[in-house]
Design a protein around this nucleic acid. Structure first.
Lengths: 216, 216
DNA sequence: CGGCATCCGGGAAGATACTG
DNA sequence: CAGTATCTTCCCGGATGCCG
């Protein structure tokens, strides 16, 4: 379905202006954030974005489809359900999301008591991963955050995160999304339950460094 | 004047969600872009953002003031006019703007025939500056794009751009904003008039490299 | 004239209900 | 489960007017 261009375009060839035409509508960036780690169903997205209404989600997804950011596809039988998936180019917005998110966290108005989203914390792992500290390390880590499962692969100083079963991981962290922040960024190892190879798990928790709070 | 929080907040501690609360409203990022290279008057901003209405500009500026992104100050006499100026933290959004803009330029929908804004091209210089190519180079370059003047300082592989008089520059480029794109990124040296030290000017034009268009 | 405030119309987003 | 449909609210854009 073709959705009419929702907001008037800016008369400006600037990349920033065009970015706003692509992803500037309300909820847009948060929908993309939810798609960073793999395809998702409509109801998953709705559940993970508390406050979004079905009609707005429908709009954002079909606009993104028109704009080449998202693809809608049907999983093979027996699943046979529709999923939404970011395109290659759509996924490339990750770097901008990370930069923007890190900037915003320095706001005096940031309210860290709000609920923490699973995709958000998994993205923060990528944002604050220190590839120097990961030299010579290679492992698969599982994360079980409520119902949601993620697999993190570290290799050659690179980190990769995707949704998927945690079985087969060298070590698995289980708990609430906030626990990830506690363990990786605040050195509180008990905020998540750890199973599997403890040495690998411990070493992994040391691979993150938060940027110094700017003097401002 | 205190402006009531315009849009309901997202119930999400994620940095991206907070970024949207800070700068997600229409025209917001473009207003900030205009403030990247120095303080500006209300009427300057209005003139440089064709299509924005005074009331929306008023809103964005006072919201940004409330949020600590922008400061309003009065220039010393004899000027004695009000100017809007990005705070330190506000200026730090530059990196996110560059990442986002470069991403958006890869859109198949990008229309490069639209008018080009002076701040936009000056920002593109920072975005595509290759510090390796600038090793051992030190100069002040002037840019006269219509009425607007910018000074670029290159030193120790760093580039700095601000609004200001071009007098005292080692070399000065004069022409339309599009000319900057032609000269620096497309190797068309005649798209701008050059005065001053030609060797410095030529060398400067070689210091930019556009990222390869992603395969997509 | 610069720097807004105000009023109005259109349209996007929110709330809720409903359907295949 | 995956969306529509409808109604309401409120932001944005455009015009106009005020005021130092």
């Amino acid at each position: 379905m073709k959705v009419t261009e929702s907001r008037r375009e800016f008369d400006d060839a600037c990349g920033i202006a065009h970015a706003l035409e692509l992803i500037g509508e309300r909820w847009g960036l948060l929908v993309l954030r939810e798609l960073l780690f793999g395809p998702r169903r409509f109801s998953d997205l709705k559940a993970d974005l508390p406050g979004i209404t079905p009609s707005v989600l429908t709009q954002r997804l079909s606009e993104f489809e028109d704009r080449g950011l998202v693809r809608k596809s049907r999983l093979p039988p027996p699943a046979s359900v529709w999923v939404y998936e970011a395109t290659e180019w759509g996924l490339d917005i990750e770097a901008a999301l990370i930069t923007l998110g890190c900037w915003a966290l320095r706001s005096p108005r940031h309210d860290s008591t709000k609920p923490v989203n699973a995709s958000s914390v998994m993205l923060s792992l990528k944002a604050n991963f220190d590839s120097v500290k990961a030299q010579g390390f290679r492992a698969r880590l599982g994360f079980r955050l409520g119902e949601k499962e993620f697999v993190v692969r570290v290799e050659d100083g690179e980190i990769e995160v995707r949704r998927g079963e945690t079985s087969g991981a060298d070590a698995t962290f289980t708990g609430a999304p906030t626990g990830v922040v506690e363990v990786m960024f605040r050195g509180a190892p008990d905020a998540l339950a750890i199973e599997g190879d403890m040495a690998i798990a411990r070493r992994f928790t040391e691979m993150f460094s938060l940027p110094a709070k700017a003097a401002q």
